[in-house]
């Protein structure tokens, strides 16, 4: 039996379409929900947690309707996308108070809060008011309130936003640990590598519709047919260009002389990135910045739907 089931789920805000005719069955393990900003990811997650009412369609978790079914929330943990807190409270007070809303006794709430804060490495800062937390700390605190009551189902809306690379890796590792414990986890993101690092099961969402669903390799193949542009700001852009221009996976090379940077268009991003470090070291080229201006999902989706 699927853990989460939606049938013809549709939601619109006035004239704006939020989600259209989404029928899905989500089973245990990690499911990645991938889509550009404004695709309908948050709407979908708020609908399956009963925070929004669908205009059409139904949502069931473990066979039970969700909206106003408060008892279900003892097995659900939800991480909102927004950076919102009771800023006057300390991290410790925030967490223990939310745990008490699960009807845990004081001792139990404190024990669980301590465990969760240790997991997200916030126990040293637990007595500071949330207002003084950095973006990354706030994000970790949001994650702590998801895991603190040990839910079976975790619904995470952009949980890696605002985290530094190390923090991201830690949260990704944690999410994978929970998957091994048999939990059902839905993670949304607009960054493909983030989702890729967690799961092979992904759902592509775009303009409120499910665009593709399945194994990440299938979607990767779809996306890989789309050429990527990579911008490299370095000391010797011409020398670097000469090393790549003959490779069959490099389609075009452009220079932006004023900013000392090189734009490489490739149809095999992975191969390009695997070669780049050795070329840089062998030729003693100093790199200031590597960005991928084209590497946003919107561009990829536009390409896939033939815009």
């Amino acid at each position: 039996m699927p853990i989460i089931e939606t049938k013809n789920l549709s939601k619109w805000y006035g004239n704006v379409l939020g989600l259209s005719d989404v029928t899905l069955q989500i089973e245990s393990g990690i499911t990645g929900l991938l889509g550009p900003n404004g695709a309908g990811k948050s709407t979908f997650l708020r609908l399956i947690t009963g925070q929004l009412k669908p205009n059409i369609g139904t949502v069931k978790i473990k066979g039970k309707k969700v909206r106003n079914n408060y008892s279900l929330f003892s097995i659900i943990g939800f991480c909102p996308e927004q950076d919102c807190f009771y800023d006057e409270l300390t991290g410790w007070q925030f967490l223990t108070n939310l745990l008490k809303l699960h009807n845990f006794s004081n001792d139990e709430a404190e024990r669980k809060a301590q465990e969760a804060l240790e997991i997200v490495e916030l126990s040293d800062d637990k007595n500071r008011v949330i207002r003084s937390y950095s973006k990354g700390m706030r994000q970790r605190l949001k994650f702590a309130q998801v895991i603190a009551h040990d839910p079976e189902i975790m619904i995470l809306d952009e949980p890696l936003n605002g985290l530094d690379p190390l923090g991201r890796r830690k949260i990704i590792r944690l999410i994978k640990t929970y998957q091994r414990e048999g939990k059902t986890i839905i993670v949304s993101s607009h960054v493909l590598p983030e989702i890729e690092a967690m799961t092979k099961k992904i759902i592509l969402i775009h303009q409120g519709k499910i665009f593709a669903q399945g194994n990440i390799h299938y979607i990767r193949d779809l996306i890989d047919t789309h050429p990527h542009i990579i911008s490299i700001k370095c000391s010797h852009p011409r020398e670097l260009a000469s090393k790549f221009i003959h490779e069959n996976y490099v389609l075009k090379v452009h220079f932006a002389i004023a900013s000392n940077s090189l734009l490489v268009e490739t149809n095999n991003r992975d191969k390009f990135f695997s070669q780049l470090p050795s070329v840089l070291i062998e030729n003693n080229i100093k790199v200031d910045e590597i960005t991928s201006p084209d590497d946003n999902l919107q561009a990829v989706f536009d390409y896939l739907i033939g815009k």
């Binding site: 947690t49 925070q51 008892s71 279900l72 929330f73 659900i76 939800f78 919102c84 939310l98 809303l101």
Partner: peptide
């Protein structure tokens, strides 16, 4: 307005 409602309505408490 503070968007903290989300923490409350996803807890096992009757509204």
């Amino acid at each position: 307005e503070g968007k903290t409602l989300t923490y409350l309505v996803t807890r096992p408490i009757p509204k």
